[in-house]
Each structure stands twice: as structure tokens, then as C-alpha cells.
Design a binder for these strands. Structure first.
Lengths: 130, 130
DNA sequence: TCTTGACTTGGAGTTAACTCCAAGTTGTAG
DNA sequence: CTACAACTTGGAGTTAACTCCAAGTCAAGA
């Protein structure tokens, strides 16, 4: 699979893919004899994981660390497990914040919709802001 | 409430609070006759909202837009409602991505924990990466 | 009143994560 | 064999969101 095909498949730029490889977010990609990237299934699996974890706000640094440990072999399984658990906690915490924001948003939207219908904005004592 | 007290209450730096005010993420804060910030309940409510929505990944630009609309008065209620709904959609989408990453993480952690117990890492055909 | 520490401003600097560029190479269609 | 698009690299530039700094002002305690 060429870099272009991977770009299109995952809606990501070629620059980002090359950047991920350069800094170690994914291991080095398989090449043709001429030196052009030819993504194999394994390469693609790494790309998919990288995108997935980046989408969840996991820092690039953490992904680099994981790949590094992976390449050091089975002796780093404990370290990798810890890293993943740490990532899990961060993501859970972030998600909790998303839920809180959603609650606040839903409340505000509800109040605005009433205002739109009645033409009057109603406020309680402790919400003098918008 | 002084800027320091607000910092401590919300675990945020004074620089960030001043930055939020400068760029318009929150409206101008109440001052003492000497020009020093003296946060009132309303100011604090804005700070709280800003932190909450930033924590959910809402871009500073969007918060600025909201404050601007708010300050233009009731004629912008529709625009504000739309903005909030847009924010809601983005947050929901981001949250979905967090859930996908969590699933993947849980699966990987589970597999690593088995490896730790048995000393053997088991792989299925389509997961040759770590 | 003096000192000391917290506050003020405008502007410059930093960080993470890309994103773009120039100059050169590869590979395919005619 | 020749175009020509798509690929390669190292390195520089950009963006969002802070973060720091210098030089000056304010205010509470001795």
C-alpha cells in the first residue's frame, strides 16, 4: 500500500505519516527496493493504533515510548503494561471532563431553547453569565 | 477574590487567567480602585465555564466567539444556541473516539496481563504489532 | 514611611504537533 | 527513452495555547 492510499484510507496527510515514522510514533515502514514506502498489514496496524490513540489525546511522546519498549522485546512487557494502564487512566479522566462539559452544555442549550420560544431568558441566582 | 485565590481554587496559573481575559475567553474581570483584579461571583462563573469547556477540548476561539455574542445582547441568542450545539457535537464525537481508544487499550492490557502470568504473548493473525 | 511581596502591562518566548519546502529520486505511461 | 507525477529527505515554518519576562504599581505589616 502506498503512502497515498494510507492517507486516503485514514484521512491523514502524508506529512503526518512521515512525521510519525521519523519521530518513532510508528516503527520504520517497509520500503520497495527503490526506497519508497510500501505499507504492509503490520505497518498499517501501527498507523491505525497511532491515529486511534492520538485521537484520544494520548501524547506523541507516550506513543514513541511504547514503540521503543516494543522494539526492545519481551523484557519490556511489564513496562508496556504500566504505560498502557497509565494511558487508560488519563483517557478516563479526560472523558469524565467531557461528560461534565456535556452536562453543562445541555443545560445551557435547554435554557436557550426556552428563551427562543418564550422570548425571555430566565436566570437563577448563581448563573449571571451566559 | 484575588487572582491568587482563583488560581488555587481551580489549579490554574495566573498567567492563564490573565491570558483568558486578554484574548476574551472571559469578559473583563472586576477591578479594585487600584486596578487589581477582584473576581466577583459572575467573574468566577465565567472562569469556571472556560476551564470546563477548555478541559473538553473546546478551542479558545470558540469561547471567545461565545463571549463576544453574549456581550452583544439578546439578539444573539440564536447564534449562541447554534454555537453551543456545534460544540456539543464536537465533544460527542471526540468522546466517541475516546471510547474506541479505551476499548483498544483494555484489550491490549488484558492480553499483556495474560502474558505476564503465563510468560507467553499470544497473537492472533491480524495483530502482529504490540 | 519604608519595605516587601503580590499585582499590573505589553510583548516576547516556548511547546506540541504538525505542515511546508526545496532539491533530488523513482516509477509508469506514451 | 522521455516526460512527468509521485515519491524521497532534512530542515525550516506554522498554529494553538499557553508561559515567561521586565519594568513598573499597589498594598499590608513593622
Amino acid at each position: 500500500m502506498t503512502i497515498k492510499e494510507v492517507c486516503e484510507k485514514y484521512d491523514i496527510t502524508a506529512d503526518t505519516l512521515r512525521y510519525y515514522e521519523r519521530v518513532g510514533v510508528i516503527p520504520e515502514v517497509t520500503r520497495t527496493p527503490g526506497g519508497i514506502r510500501d505499507y504492509q498489514e503490520t505497518d498499517i496496524a501501527w498507523v491505525e493504533n497511532a491515529i486511534c490513540f492520538r485521537d484520544a489525546g494520548m501524547p506523541v511522546e507516550m506513543l514513541i515510548e511504547y514503540v521503543k519498549l516494543f522494539q526492545e522485546g519481551d523484557s519490556t512487557i511489564d513496562a508496556r503494561t504500566n504505560l498502557l494502564k497509565e494511558a487508560r487512566e488519563s483517557i478516563l479522566e479526560a472523558r469524565k471532563k467531557y461528560d461534565i462539559a456535556l452536562e453543562k452544555l445541555d443545560y445551557k442549550i435547554g435554557r436557550y431553547e426556552i428563551a427562543q420560544k418564550t422570548g425571555v431568558l430566565t436566570w437563577t441566582e448563581d448563573e449571571k453569565d451566559g
